[in-house]
C-alpha cells in the first residue's frame, strides 16, 4: 500500500505556548533593562560593561549596559521561539523552546540587574567585582522555572496512523510467532570532546576569575551532556522509547502513531546546527550524537524524529515489520 499524504499538523499553538515562549522571556529581558533605570540616580555615570580576570576593564553608560543585552536577548528569544514553536510540530520541541528561552532570559537579564545593583552607592566602578553569584542563581532559577512551565504545555492528542509503512522502507525477517526487540546505547564521538572542552573552559574561567557563582555553568554542562549526548534507544512491541542516560528525558513514540520508519544520513552541523536534542529546518526533532546513519521516524501530525544510531536499518526494519503486522491484523 502506498503512503497517503501525512495528516495535518496536530499541535495548534495555544495562548499558553505564546505566553511561556515569547511573552514571559521578553518581559524578563525588559525587566532587566527597567530595574537598573529605577536605580540610575544611585549609580555612577560609568558602569562596568566588560570584565577581565582582574575586574572590570571597559566602562560605559547605563544605556549601553542595558540596551545591548536586552536587544540581543529579544532577538535570540524570538528566533528560538519561532524555530521551536512555529516550525516544531512536536510538543517536546516546544517544551525545549520554553526551557531555553526562560533560562536565556533570566541569565541575560541578571547581568545588567546585578551589575547595576552592585554599583548602587559606589563612587568608583573599577572597584566592583563580577556579580557571579546572583547571575548563577538567576540561571538556575530560570532553568527550574522553564522546566516547570514547559510541563504545563498540554500533551498532544492521540493521533493514530492509518497507512502502512512505505514499501521501499526496510523490514526485518520476523515470523508471526516471533517477538523482536532492538536495544542500543548511543553516545557521541566528536560531541563528547566538544562538551568536555566546554566544561573545562567553563571551570578554568570560573577559577581564574575566582567567580565561584559561575561554577554553576560547568555543573549544568555535565548534566546537559548526560542528558542530551547519551541515549538508550529501545524498539519493542509498544513503540520506540528513547531515554537519556541521566534518565531526565524520555521520548516515547507508540507504534500506532508511526507512519513509516526509514534510514537517514545526518551531518549534525549542516542538518541540525550541532549535537544534542535539536530542531531541524523542517521542525523535526533531532537526537543527534554523531554524523552518519540515523533512524528517521515519520509520525502523524507532520511530526518527524531523526535519531542517530549505528545500524539504523535494523530498528527501522523492526518498526515497519511490527506496524505491518499490527495494521494488517488488528487485534
Amino acid at each position: 500500500m502506498s503512503r497517503s499524504a501525512p495528516t495535518s499538523r496536530n499541535a495548534p499553538i495555544s495562548t499558553r505556548q505564546i505566553l511561556w515562549t515569547f511573552a514571559l522571556p521578553v518581559a524578563v529581558l525588559n525587566l532587566g533593562a527597567v530595574l537598573p533605570w529605577l536605580w540610575r540616580l544611585e549609580i555612577p555615570q560609568r558602569v562596568p560593561l566588560h570584565w577581565s580576570f582582574d575586574g572590570p576593564d571597559r566602562f560605559g553608560s547605563l544605556t549601553e549596559l542595558t540596551a545591548t543585552i536586552t536587544i540581543v536577548g529579544v532577538i535570540v528569544v524570538v528566533g528560538i521561539g519561532w524555530i521551536t514553536m512555529v516550525l516544531g510540530a512536536d510538543v517536546s520541541t516546544r517544551r525545549m523552546g520554553v526551557i531555553t528561552n526562560t533560562v536565556l532570559a533570566f541569565l541575560l537579564a541578571s547581568i545588567p540587574v546585578s551589575t547595576a545593583h552592585a554599583a548602587r552607592g559606589v563612587s568608583d566602578p573599577s572597584t566592583l567585582s563580577f556579580p557571579s553569584i546572583p547571575i548563577g542563581l538567576a540561571t538556575v532559577f530560570g532553568a527550574a522555572l522553564g522546566v516547570a512551565l514547559a510541563f504545563t504545555l498540554p500533551r498532544e492528542p492521540h493521533n493514530p496512523a492509518v497507512v502502512l509503512p512505505a514499501t521501499a522502507a526496510p523490514r526485518v525477517a520476523l515470523s508471526d510467532a516471533e517477538t523482536g526487540v532492538w536495544v542500543s546505547r548511543q553516545f557521541a564521538g566528536t560531541s563528547i570532546w566538544i562538551a568536555m572542552g566546554s566544561i573545562l573552559v567553563a571551570c578554568a574561567l570560573s577559577l581564574l576569575m575566582q567567580a565561584w557563582g559561575l561554577l554553576v555553568m560547568p555543573a549544568l554542562l555535565v548534566v546537559v551532556c548526560m542528558t542530551f549526548l547519551a541515549w538508550d534507544i529501545r524498539v519493542d512491541s509498544q513503540g520506540v522509547t528513547v531515554r537519556s542516560v541521566s534518565r531526565l528525558i524520555t521520548l516515547h513514540i507508540p507504534h500506532e502513531e508511526i507512519e513509516t520508519a526509514d534510514v537517514a544520513s545526518v551531518s549534525p552541523l549542516r542538518d541540525f546546527g550541532g549535537w544534542g536534542w535539536r530542531t531541524g529546518r523542517d521542525g523535526s526533532v533531532g537526537l543527534i550524537v554523531r554524523s552518519g546513519t540515523a533512524l528517521d521516524l515519520r509520525r502523524t501530525g507532520g511530526r518527524r524524529y531523526v535519531i542517530t544510531t549505528h545500524d539504523a536499518s535494523t530498528p527501522a526494519g523492526l518498526i515497519n515489520t511490527i506496524i505491518d503486522r499490527e495494521r494488517q491484523n488488528p487485534r
Partner: peptide, 10 residues
C-alpha cells in the same frame, strides 16, 4: 542489537 524470541519454538 536485535533480539528475537519465538515462544512456539522447542
Amino acid at each position: 542489537m536485535l533480539f528475537r524470541v519465538d515462544t512456539t519454538s522447542s
